[in-house]
Design a binder for these strands. Structure first.
Lengths: 214, 214
DNA sequence: TAGATTGTTAATCGATTAACAATC
DNA sequence: TAGATTGTTAATCGATTAACAATC
């Protein structure tokens, strides 16, 4: 199989969610051209991306929608479920703990952990919030492969180190902090600050443009 | 001023948060080299990024930390505060409504809106949750410039259209859905599915490697 | 057959990296 | 002065786009 670029990897779930959202009463087939038009993307780019994960494309017809969905899901590894736990049961941590939509991506969040005794117990979602002291024990009892970090920035590295010591191989980091990890561990940082920078710059540029027009 | 690339724009907040986290009792100066080392980045890249937003770099000394922070903030437009509102007061919407850390990025979330009467009132954060029918009125009374969408995917386009009709120029979209907007409106999508794809692929690749070793 | 579509090969573009000159 | 650092110019790399051949 050809190497896949990170940009392609990030576009695949976009295709996937669009494909899943198509009403079932329509055609069973969809072309890369149609996908590109619906998502405002270059059609060559879409075609190339799809070619990397599926060989089901037929000239004049396109891709069979359901097969394409399966191919993308298989490629992304959504078919094996990944058990995860959350470190930090603050607002964001609890929101993620209660979010049921992750199952669609093969992500199964088992529990959240926190130092604050007031939070320990069961959340509204029915999933347990446990004390940090039970983290190691829990990891050994369950095959947890993903750690989600939603603690304040100053505790993020510590949380990260403990997760790695527990044998976790991939970290989804929501703390605005760079994490130092061994090279075999993947850190995926959800960089809200970066998004805000893009928004903020757009608005300040627009304000400048308005000034110029006066 | 030179054109700035989107990749640079997204790295600037990373530098910013690192700079802010440096204890004040250390040196007042920091070099691009040191920044690069701390954040695991290329030092030429950091130097080039910083040169775009600040001219305070001095050979052998580096940048004055506080001035560099100011320069980055000014460049990103964090000095003007942007008023924002949230559409969708579900778990994620309420988590964002209650998050106090956005002020640091010049983002001021005023209120959340929802169709569900049970949610209307005041959230724990002290900020109001209002009925969607009052959206237009609220936008006219306040200078809202950013709309944050946290509704389910199927309502996202509708929410987006209403926000644009209210005069909003930038949208931060948490719904897993592509939004169609006029060209002068900026949509920044927080693509959690993309992050999950990266995590999932990493784990499935690692599993394959383990198999090969048998 | 003609036309829509796929998939591939070549060209372009943009961003990163390397090399180096300038400065304190 | 020597060395650390900045900032710039040139080379490389990777991803996107364009052109085109293949297919049903």
């Amino acid at each position: 199989m050809k190497e896949i670029s990170k940009s392609t990897l990030k576009r695949l779930p976009v295709y996937l969610s669009y494909l899943k959202g198509i009403p079932a009463d329509g055609s069973a087939y969809i072309s890369a051209t149609a996908l590109a038009a619906a998502l405002d993307m270059g059609e060559v780019q879409v075609r190339k991306d799809l070619a990397l994960v599926s060989s089901g494309g037929r000239p004049k017809v396109g891709y069979h929608r359901d097969s394409l969905i399966s191919d993308i899901e298989a490629f992304l590894g959504y078919t094996n479920t990944n058990d995860a736990l959350i470190v930090g049961a603050g607002k964001l941590g609890r929101a993620l703990l209660g979010y049921s939509g992750f199952a669609e991506y093969g992500l199964n969040v088992l529990a959240a952990f926190d130092l604050n005794d007031a939070l320990i117990g069961t959340s509204k979602s029915g999933k347990p919030i446990m004390h940090m002291s039970r983290l190691e024990e829990f990891c050994q009892a369950n095959k947890v492969r993903i750690g989600i970090i939603t603690v304040p920035a100053e505790y993020a590295q510590e949380a990260c180190d403990r997760l790695i010591a527990c044998g976790i191989k991939a970290i989804w980091n929501f703390a605005p902090k760079h994490l130092d990890v061994p090279s075999d561990i993947l850190v995926q940082s959800e960089n809200m600050a970066a998004s805000l920078a893009v928004l903020s710059k757009h608005l300040s540029e627009q304000m400048e443009k308005n000034k110029e027009q006066l």
